[in-house]
C-alpha cells in the first residue's frame, strides 16, 4: 500500500490572513486578479510563479480571507499585497492580519473577531459639516458628506465615503 509523504518532506507553507479595505464590496475574482496583477507586474512572471500563491478563502461581506504561499516567499507576497492600491478601478488597501503555519491557528488567532458591516441611517455633524450615515463596523463609521467641496474631494480620490469614528460623533 502506498504511503503518504512524510510531514517533514512536505513543502513548507505559510497561511496569511488578510482584510481588504474598500468603500465597495469586493468579489473574490476581482481581488485575485488585482493581487496577481501586482505580483506579476512588480516582481515579474518568473518570481510570481515561484510563490505557489493560492487564495483559499475569502468573504466579500467582510473583505477578509486567507491565502497560502511558499514559506520562503512570504516577503514577496507581503510586498504584492502592499502594492494593491486599486481593485476593479476602486480605491482599496489590503491589511495583513497575521501569518501562521497552520489554517487552524490562523483562524483562531486572526479571523475569529472580524467585525461585520452594519447599515446605519441618520444625519450627523462633524466639525461643522453635515453627513448622512451609511454603515458602521466596530468603532468605525462611514458617511456621505453634504458639502460639495467634500463630495468633489471624494470623487477625485475615487472614494464614496468619509471615514469617521464613533468618538468623532460622540456615540
Amino acid at each position: 500500500m502506498r504511503k503518504g509523504m512524510k510531514p517533514s518532506m512536505r513543502p513548507r507553507k505559510r497561511y496569511v490572513a488578510f482584510r481588504v479595505y474598500c468603500d465597495d464590496r469586493i468579489e473574490k475574482e476581482e481581488f485575485i486578479r488585482s493581487l496577481w496583477g501586482e505580483a506579476t507586474a512588480f516582481f515579474g512572471e518568473e518570481r510570481a510563479a515561484e510563490l505557489n500563491l493560492w487564495v483559499m478563502d475569502y468573504h466579500p461581506e467582510t473583505g477578509t480571507g486567507f491565502l497560502v504561499c511558499r514559506h520562503d516567499r512570504l516577503e514577496v507576497v507581503r510586498g504584492a499585497l502592499g502594492l494593491v492600491g486599486r481593485i476593479g478601478g476602486r480605491r482599496a488597501g489590503i491589511g495583513v492580519l497575521g501569518v501562521s503555519g497552520t489554517v487552524k491557528s490562523l483562524k483562531r488567532k486572526f479571523l475569529n473577531k472580524v467585525e461585520k458591516f452594519k447599515e446605519e441611517k441618520g444625519k450627523i455633524d462633524f466639525e461643522g459639516d453635515a453627513f448622512n450615515l451609511v454603515r458602521s463596523h466596530g468603532e468605525f463609521i462611514d458617511a456621505v458628506p453634504e458639502r460639495d467641496e467634500l463630495k468633489a474631494r471624494l470623487k477625485e480620490q475615487n472614494r464614496r465615503f468619509i471615514g469617521l469614528t464613533r468618538k468623532d460623533i460622540g456615540w
Binding site: 479595505y21 474598500c22 512588480f42 516582481f43 516577503e75 514577496v76 507581503r78 510586498g79 499585497l81 502592499g82 502594492l83 492600491g85 480605491r91 482599496a92 488597501g93 491589511g95 495583513v96 480620490q157 472614494r159 471615514g163
Partner: peptide
C-alpha cells in the same frame, strides 16, 4: 496617505523597500 486605505503596516512597507 489621504485616507486609511493608503496606510501600510511595517512588514508590508519593509517588503516593498527590500524588493
Amino acid at each position: 496617505a489621504q485616507s486609511h486605505l493608503d496606510l501600510r503596516g511595517w512588514d508590508t512597507a519593509a517588503a516593498i523597500l527590500r524588493a
